[in-house]
């Protein structure tokens, strides 16, 4: 059943990718089709996660591929909250290809099937994995917003005559949303890290390279908030900082199989 629900989710996300691309050429119907693709895909994936949760023996997304599945769902959920508005459809063109590709990767890694009994306690996994993944989903969206900001800003700086042709959010809006998304995601990462460190202390283990990168990620986003809200940094500099943080997020995600699941 869980495997069966993968296909509608994947196909709907893929349809959204194609429709978002079509919307850039001809805005209107394609954009609405994309939005419905995201909504239906999200519903199917929610069903997939629900089936996994019901059937699993313990925390269902404890594997790397499983956590990727949950991560995709969180990214699409965050995007759905406000990303489906017509002006944000360009963001969909950045987020949905990533969501579709990662969902497929998750399936290839067995993350969409019902897994076995995890190594760690359910509470620890729910808190640690859930919080860190929620934060990473927020950072992914913030990176999409920052990229859209840089693209839009470049158009204005280059005085592209077609700068008004594609409907996109205003620079100020993109910047505010990036800041707010990071401001919401960072506390989740903080709590996730604290839970992880508590368990590490209980088990008497030491920090590995991946944990150090995660802490570095926390520092980068912490610096982002400090520089933006306290020191008045705005514009390209903060957008680049959000992208640097996202590179670290990718590093953590890619490094997980080497350190935590080897």
């Amino acid at each position: 059943m869980a495997e069966l629900l993968f296909w509608p989710a994947f196909l709907a996300y893929s349809e959204a990718v194609l429709a978002y691309a079509g919307n850039v050429r001809t805005p209107g119907l394609a954009g609405r089709l994309a939005t419905w693709g995201v909504r239906l895909g999200w519903l199917a994936q929610t069903g997939l996660l629900a089936v996994q949760a019901v059937r699993a023996d313990g925390f269902p997304w404890s594997t790397w591929a499983g956590s990727l599945n949950l991560f995709v769902w969180l990214v699409v959920t965050a995007y759905l909250i406000w990303g489906c508005r017509p002006r944000y459809r360009l963001l969909g063109l950045a987020v949905m290809p990533l969501a579709a590709a990662l969902l497929l990767t998750s399936r290839l890694g067995g993350g969409t099937s019902v897994g076995g009994r995890p190594r760690y306690s359910d509470l620890f996994l729910a808190l640690h994995v859930g919080l860190v993944l929620a934060a990473f989903a927020g950072f992914t969206l913030a990176a999409g917003l920052a990229a859209l900001y840089l693209w839009q800003e470049r158009g204005l700086k280059r005085r592209r005559a077609s700068v008004l042709r594609v409907r996109a959010p205003a620079l100020a809006t993109l910047e505010t949303l990036t800041g707010r998304t990071i401001a919401v995601a960072l506390p989740a990462l903080t709590l996730g890290i604290v839970v992880g460190l508590v368990r590490l202390r209980e088990e008497g283990g030491g920090l590995d390279a991946l944990m150090v990168v995660t802490l570095l990620t926390w520092l980068v986003y912490g610096a982002y908030l400090l520089l933006r809200y306290e020191l008045g940094w705005r514009g390209r500099r903060t957008a680049y900082l959000a992208l640097v943080g996202f590179l670290l997020v990718i590093t953590v995600r890619l490094g997980l199989p080497l350190t935590h699941f080897s």
């Binding site: 805005p27 008004l164 042709r165 409907r167 620079l171």
Partner: peptide
Amino acid sequence: SETAIAESPASVSSAAAALAQQVFG
């Protein structure tokens, strides 16, 4: 509502205002 025929500015002053909106919302 179904086409973008009326979305873009048609004069210098409205283009200036539309660009300002692109920066500030």
